[in-house]
Design a protein around this nucleic acid. Sequence first.
DNA 1: CCTCCCTACTTGTTATGACAAGTTATAAAC
DNA 2: GTTTATAACTTGTCATAACAAGTAGGGAGG
Lengths: 248, 248
Amino acid sequence: MNLAVATLNPSDSPQPLYAQIRDQLRRQILEGGYSAYQQLPSEKSLMGAFGVSRITVRQALSDLHSEGLVFSAQGKGTYVSRPKAVQNIQRLQGFGEAMAAQGYAASARLLGFQERRPPRAVSEALGLATGEEVIEVTRVRYLNQQAVCVESSYFPLTIGRRLFGLDLSGDIFPLLENRLGIALGAADIGLESVRCDEAAQRHLSLGADEPILRVERLTHDRNGRPIDFEYLRFRGDSFKYQFRVERK
Amino acid sequence: MNLAVATLNPSDSPQPLYAQIRDQLRRQILEGGYSAYQQLPSEKSLMGAFGVSRITVRQALSDLHSEGLVFSAQGKGTYVSRPKAVQNIQRLQGFGEAMAAQGYAASARLLGFQERRPPRAVSEALGLATGEEVIEVTRVRYLNQQAVCVESSYFPLTIGRRLFGLDLSGDIFPLLENRLGIALGAADIGLESVRCDEAAQRHLSLGADEPILRVERLTHDRNGRPIDFEYLRFRGDSFKYQFRVERK
DNA sequence: CCTCCCTACTTGTTATGACAAGTTATAAAC
DNA sequence: GTTTATAACTTGTCATAACAAGTAGGGAGG
């Protein structure tokens, strides 16, 4: 491996040390600096290489561990996991971010942007008072020029109105973070298999009986307040959701 | 809250301190000792209540955090997440374990147990040499007396043969752990929506065009060696996969 | 009354140190 | 040669300590 690139940013860096180390190791792993099942340098070596204490190294490794990129065996060492076509979706990512990470070209086409009374399920998920309106954003998602997903996103008015006029041809998450200054936290995701509905038939040019992967996603900010509820409907034949879980 | 039950097992306990604290807090949260958005005791209070250091408290909280049970805000405190109908599936669980945690009665019926040449995808996933045989276990899963899932599991011969004669009417994970002494690690999961196949039609009594949620699961032991590859086919109308991810 | 500041709380990050527990290779004993 | 013991590694767990950074409340000053 190459630990010559063990340079951390100066102390005025916005990123904590463990995050810099984590990101550097992650990049090396993903970019092929390591082969599958190869042993990482020991925690002691990393301490020396980066000039930090063990607790900092372990926090970086702990993150990679929960991302499924590495695993450890007591007494032996820490190893790189077998590379997966789709590595961890343990991070909350937009469709575009996730696809870009795998080298696909993703885009979106805006179908509608309007203020409306939401369906009851949406109202409940966002924790809104009955009658309170939302901003609905409807889009079609493309992967390599093929339409693969119809997406309906619902935002509370205070957030949704600020999205008006922004470029909605990519992921919305970066807009929320960088343009609106909202720090994203966790998201609850639900997946089920359903039959094609009318909107999906039209926009994804599908037959009536085609299977659809229906994803519900409720995204929260870092303080646990819900800020975005979405329905995503993927073509069954062109999307597969992959991730990793641990026994613990 | 009730910190009167802040008793940890004696030092000869098999569980580390942070795990005991984590499990105790998790139980209190899940059993309704806390309401949504209620603040947990501060790390300092927990240190005193359990008589441990801050690093131990934080490790317990960190686990709950990644399970989505709590979230933290710097300067304010740690709070209980809004309760979800389906809490985190971030832990690797068998179908029975997951359903039992939600108060459902789950069971399984064995359809077949045989030694055979696996499909190529299975052979690749398990990392077997071409021509190497496996044990295939086929079962139907029931939820409240209704058939909801057809399951095909593939084990390497050395593991699969030891399952012969054991009670396969429940989850296999506990058998692997307790009877065969295999420590489970992480699992890679893939989800997609497909049309009903012939076996699913017969065992789940479905029509030909019904949507099916198809789950692939490759389970590893704690050393990263693959030990079980499964195909699960769920009725689309009676199963929904839910979990939580973080932005990080 | 309103504003500003300071204090006291919270969680976040990091250091140093220690011992336990598991693995591996070497060296000693048989 | 084979077995056993040991030493030298690894990761796992836990303690104590300090400072940074964010929040909330109270008090001083306008």
